[in-house]
């Protein structure tokens, strides 16, 4: 197999683009796809400060790498969950990337340690409040990323979600007709009110395999074993199903997700053309229901935000 562009030996074939690339041309392809996502979805500009959510996995480290190489101002935040055997390893990968690559671009790594800030590792916290580890983890990560972005004056928060992540999540939401979440699913979510950071997913045009290949080719040392809590999640099953479809007809994932985005955009265009637009856009919904948490001031729909409620419960549980 030879590279479509320069005819030297290819290192990766991309059936959905009916193409194959050598390392150099593949890197160009990846950078172009990300640049296209950033511009097409109006994610951010050269002068904006970006906070990348990094985990030590391939997606977030590749994202950080690509943004820096494209010349954006991107720092990163790592949340240390305190999971034995996993957190230390993943943190080491993030630190190494920060020291070797990010530093040369004058980018900074911020670290949030759950054990120090929340008083216990994620598993103990989940036990204390009788909730599954992953949902506890989700609440903490969402909260801390948003809070850091807002407090440290970042313009936008970027996550490493790829096409497979987005397509499998869409499949899950469609299977259960989670309509509320369908309109929250997009590669660029605006800062809807004061206190909520804008969130973007610049890798949404790249498949998981393409992102992994980018990491391998560019010698990004990432953690291959994922968080032990992720075993057997529904998302893995949805991804597996989509990949079987992709194997039979290349381009399925992209057609599914990008088709959804087009429909969403045209529905929004129609809505805004009406004399009285229905209050369906996320920003409007948020404005109608969100206000500052009584305890911490972060935006919430309740009196006290889910993070503060969770921490209060954990404290009560630990002193009992």
């Amino acid at each position: 197999m030879n590279c479509n562009k320069c005819k030297t030996k290819a290192v990766i074939g991309l059936p959905r683009h009916n193409a194959a690339f050598c390392k150099t041309c593949f890197n160009t392809f990846v950078h172009e796809q990300v640049a296209r996502a950033i511009k097409g979805e109006r994610m951010f500009g050269r002068d904006h400060r970006i906070l990348v959510a990094v985990s030590g996995g391939k997606d977030s480290l590749a994202l950080w790498d690509i943004l820096l190489k494209l010349g954006y101002k991107a720092d990163a935040l790592y949340v240390d969950l305190g999971i034995p055997g996993y957190s230390a390893k993943s943190r080491e990968k993030v630190q190494r990337f920060a020291d070797t690559v990010a530093r040369t671009h004058e980018a900074t790594l911020l670290i949030h340690k759950v054990e120090e800030e929340e008083g216990a590792g994620i598993r103990e916290l989940a036990n204390l409040i009788h909730r599954p580890t992953c949902s506890t983890c989700g609440t903490i990560k969402r909260y801390q990323f948003n809070r850091t972005a807002v407090e440290q004056h970042y313009d936008v928060m970027a996550t490493g979600h790829n096409l497979d992540d987005e397509a499998s999540r869409l499949l899950g939401n469609v299977l259960h007709w989670q309509e509320d979440y369908l309109d929250k699913q997009g590669p660029s979510l605006p800062a809807s009110i004061e206190g909520f950071a804008k969130k973007v997913k610049p890798l949404y045009r790249l498949s998981e395999r393409e992102v992994a290949a980018y990491s391998v080719l560019n010698r990004i040392d990432y953690i291959v074993d994922e968080c032990p809590m992720a075993k057997g999640s529904k998302m893995l099953l949805y991804k597996e199903v989509l990949n079987r479809l992709e194997t039979e007809s290349p381009g399925t994932k992209q057609a599914f997700y990008c088709g959804f985005l087009e429909k969403q955009a045209s529905a929004l265009r129609q809505g805004s053309g009406q004399a009285q637009p229905a209050p369906t856009s996320m920003a409007e919904k948020d404005r109608a229901t969100l206000h500052p948490c009584a305890t911490c001031g972060q935006p919430t729909t309740a009196e006290i935000c889910s993070y503060c409620k969770m921490m209060a419960k954990a404290k009560a549980g630990s002193t009992r």
């Binding site: 996995g57 391939k58 983890c137 990560k141 996550t159 499998s168 999540r169 998981e208 994922e226 893995l236």
Partner: peptide
């Protein structure tokens, strides 16, 4: 190359 995705999703 497949990982489980984050809690967010």
């Amino acid at each position: 190359v497949i990982s489980g995705g984050s809690a967010d999703e």
